[in-house]
Computed example of a mutant assay.
Amino acid sequence: MALFEVPAMDAADERVLGELEVFRGTLRHHVAEPRRWLGQLRRSMIAGAVRGSNTIEGHTVGQADAEAIVAGEEMLTEHDARTRAAVAGYSDALTYVLQAARFEVFGYDPMLLSALHFMMLRGELDRSPGRYRLGPIWVSGAPDNPPVYTGPPAEDVPSLMVELCGWLQDGDLDAPGYVRAAMAHLNLVSIHPWRDGNGRMARCLHTLVLARQLVLAPEFASIEEWLGSSPHNTAMYYAALGAAQGGRFQPERDAHDWVRFCLRAHHLQAQVVQRRLDMAAEVWRVLAERVAMAGLGERTIAAVYAAARPDGVRRTTYMRDEGLTRDQAIRDLQALRAAGLIEEAGHGRTQRYLAAGPAAQAERAARVAITSQPLRDPYGDA
């Protein structure tokens, strides 16, 4: 076999996997229940994954801009063409992954991975999206630096990709989904089959493997947001990847530490998701009370809830989420402004609405109460 093999799990890994199963059960229960705020939270999670994976590659956009792309709207702020194309392309590929979770007809095939790669890089045709590289490749980390990783020869790429897809389809099916996803990630990024976009594709494949195994709704299971959420997390990601690879394509190396890194990331991200679900439910509750006290209609809770997020809400987004006409949305937002629960920010294309007064105070209190304690390191606390 010319791929990294699934390592044996030790007692600590089995414990973390067990805790992840508990998280999965709890989160699936929450996600399955009909809640008005869940759609907004899903969009936020998808945008976080899109933003996180692109941030690792140097294409940095704010959460509001990522959510706008996911919602099919224009970004609020100006970005260069390459960044806009990278974020839009990744959003398209991740959208496919989310839908592929429940495809009745599905198979892992090199053409599938090349098609996803094309979606990601379709705005940069000079990067040969979807086509395997024809020559050697290495990763330097910065211009003029010596290589930190050298991929296998180009002539080996087609056979390696066939082997990888064969393993994805039929290999180690008894291994936990989180472990298979981590190994798919490591093997694809180590083969480095394309001239560019290999890291994004490996992270996307990681999410696809989890999606197909129905570990959890993909937008709640992905670790892409966590990996790109801070320079510290990104540095740890590169360090774990580098330690597993050892500077060149060496699939005989032990991948245990890499899998452990990914399990830890999934555990931390699961804690973040649980907090967001708890916070969303509490914020919705307290804002519903404020709306009722102001004598406003129940549907306006969705508007003030969206406005309570850091970047606020656009009128068009509120219209689409709630299935309203333009006039209905305007009347709702004007009523909330008159009640002192929201305020305008920006003008024209950048106009949005932010929570104000008692609504903003209630949101802050709920947020502080739920996020006052640090996350728990599942291995550090063992």
Rank of each mutant, 00 (worst) to 15 (best):
Asp80Asn: 15
Trp37Met: 15
Ala93Thr: 00
Ser53Pro: 03
Arg36Gln: 12
Ala47Cys: 08
Glu14Pro: 01
Trp37Gly: 10
Arg35Gln: 12
Pro34Ala: 04
Gly72Met: 11
Ile56Cys: 02
Ala100Tyr: 03
Met75Cys: 08
Val97Glu: 02
Gly62Ser: 14
Val61Phe: 02
Ala68Gln: 10
Asn54His: 04
Thr77Asp: 11
Met45Lys: 15
Arg42Asn: 05
Arg51Glu: 06
Ala68Phe: 05
Asp80Trp: 05
Ala49Lys: 02
Ala12Arg: 15
Leu20Ser: 08
Leu27Phe: 09
Val16Thr: 15
Glu57Arg: 08
Thr95Gln: 11
Leu27Cys: 06
Thr95Leu: 05
Glu78Phe: 13
Glu74Asn: 06
His59Gln: 07
Ala88Gly: 00
Val97Pro: 02
His59Arg: 11
Ala47His: 12
Arg28Cys: 05
Gly48Asn: 13
Ser53His: 05
Arg42Gly: 07
Gly62Tyr: 07
Arg35Met: 08
Ser44Arg: 15
Asp80Leu: 02
Phe23Ser: 09
Ala32Thr: 03
Val16Arg: 07
Arg51Ile: 03
Leu27Glu: 08
Tyr96Ile: 02
Val31Glu: 08
Val50Cys: 10
Leu20Met: 15
Gly58Leu: 05
Ser91Leu: 01
Asp13Met: 15
Trp37Glu: 13
Met45Asp: 06
Arg15Val: 14
Ala81His: 08
Trp37His: 13
Ala64Leu: 14
Phe23Leu: 07
Thr77Trp: 07
Thr77Gly: 00
Met45Ala: 15
Glu78Gly: 09
Leu41Pro: 15
Ala93Met: 07
Leu20Tyr: 08
Ala32Pro: 05
Gly62Arg: 06
Glu78Asp: 07
Leu94Cys: 01
Leu17Val: 11
Arg28Ala: 12
